[in-house]
Lab assay of single mutants.
Amino acid sequence: TTYKLILNGKTLKGETTTEAVDAETAERVFKEYAKKNGVDGEWTYDDATKTFTSTE
Results as ranks from 00 to 15, higher is better:
residue 51 T to Y: 01
residue 20 A to M: 02
residue 51 T to W: 01
residue 55 T to E: 07
residue 36 K to S: 11
residue 37 N to C: 15
residue 2 T to A: 06
residue 30 F to G: 00
residue 42 E to I: 14
residue 5 L to P: 03
residue 37 N to G: 05
residue 53 T to I: 09
residue 52 F to S: 01
residue 15 E to C: 15
residue 6 I to K: 05
residue 20 A to H: 02
residue 41 G to W: 15
residue 39 V to P: 02
residue 19 E to M: 14
residue 6 I to A: 03
residue 53 T to W: 09
residue 29 V to A: 09
residue 47 D to H: 11
residue 32 E to C: 08
residue 40 D to T: 11
residue 21 V to Q: 13
residue 25 T to V: 08
residue 17 T to H: 09
residue 39 V to K: 02
residue 7 L to M: 10
residue 36 K to W: 08
residue 39 V to C: 07
residue 27 E to S: 09
residue 34 A to M: 07
residue 37 N to A: 14
residue 14 G to T: 15
residue 39 V to W: 14
residue 32 E to A: 12
residue 18 T to S: 04
residue 9 G to W: 14
residue 5 L to M: 04
residue 2 T to N: 08
residue 40 D to C: 13
residue 24 E to I: 12
residue 51 T to M: 03
residue 29 V to C: 09
residue 21 V to R: 11
residue 50 K to V: 02
residue 20 A to T: 05
residue 35 K to I: 12
residue 49 T to A: 07
residue 8 N to Q: 10
residue 42 E to G: 05
residue 21 V to H: 12
residue 38 G to D: 06
residue 25 T to Y: 07
residue 9 G to C: 08
residue 23 A to M: 13
residue 4 K to R: 13
residue 44 T to N: 08
residue 7 L to T: 04
residue 16 T to I: 15
residue 24 E to H: 10
residue 37 N to S: 10
residue 54 S to M: 15
residue 30 F to N: 01
residue 28 R to V: 08
residue 32 E to G: 04
residue 33 Y to S: 01
residue 51 T to R: 02
residue 36 K to Y: 10
residue 42 E to Q: 12
residue 7 L to W: 10
residue 25 T to I: 07
residue 13 K to W: 11
residue 50 K to H: 11
residue 13 K to G: 05
residue 34 A to R: 02
residue 20 A to S: 06
residue 52 F to I: 01
residue 19 E to T: 14
residue 34 A to H: 01
residue 19 E to R: 13
residue 47 D to A: 14
residue 26 A to K: 00
residue 36 K to L: 13
residue 23 A to H: 10
residue 25 T to N: 07
residue 53 T to V: 09
residue 43 W to R: 00
residue 15 E to W: 14
residue 29 V to G: 03
residue 25 T to W: 08
residue 1 T to D: 12
residue 41 G to D: 04
residue 25 T to H: 13
residue 42 E to D: 12
residue 27 E to A: 11
residue 56 E to I: 07
residue 18 T to L: 14
residue 43 W to C: 02
residue 13 K to I: 10
residue 47 D to E: 14
residue 55 T to I: 09
residue 46 D to M: 03
residue 13 K to V: 11
residue 43 W to H: 01
residue 23 A to L: 12
residue 10 K to A: 11
residue 45 Y to W: 02
residue 21 V to K: 13
residue 22 D to F: 03
residue 53 T to C: 07
residue 29 V to P: 00
residue 40 D to A: 11
residue 22 D to G: 04
residue 12 L to H: 14
residue 31 K to N: 04
residue 52 F to D: 00
residue 50 K to S: 05
residue 15 E to G: 07
residue 22 D to H: 03
residue 7 L to K: 00
residue 8 N to V: 13
residue 11 T to H: 14
residue 7 L to H: 03
residue 54 S to K: 03
residue 13 K to R: 11
residue 5 L to E: 03
residue 31 K to Q: 07
residue 14 G to N: 11
residue 19 E to A: 08
residue 4 K to E: 03
residue 11 T to V: 11
residue 51 T to N: 01
residue 52 F to H: 01
residue 26 A to G: 01
residue 9 G to I: 04
residue 53 T to R: 07
residue 3 Y to S: 03
residue 3 Y to I: 04
residue 1 T to N: 12
residue 44 T to M: 09
residue 40 D to R: 10
residue 34 A to T: 06
residue 8 N to G: 04
residue 51 T to E: 03
residue 49 T to D: 04
residue 40 D to F: 14
residue 47 D to I: 10
residue 30 F to C: 00
residue 42 E to S: 11
residue 41 G to F: 07
residue 11 T to Y: 14
residue 29 V to Q: 08
residue 39 V to D: 03
residue 12 L to A: 10
residue 20 A to K: 02
residue 54 S to V: 15
residue 13 K to Y: 12
residue 46 D to N: 10
residue 34 A to N: 02
residue 7 L to Q: 01
residue 25 T to F: 06
residue 41 G to Q: 04
residue 44 T to W: 07
residue 12 L to I: 14
residue 11 T to L: 12
residue 39 V to L: 09
residue 19 E to P: 04
residue 24 E to S: 11
residue 41 G to V: 05
residue 42 E to N: 11
residue 19 E to H: 13
residue 41 G to E: 04
residue 37 N to Y: 15
residue 42 E to L: 13
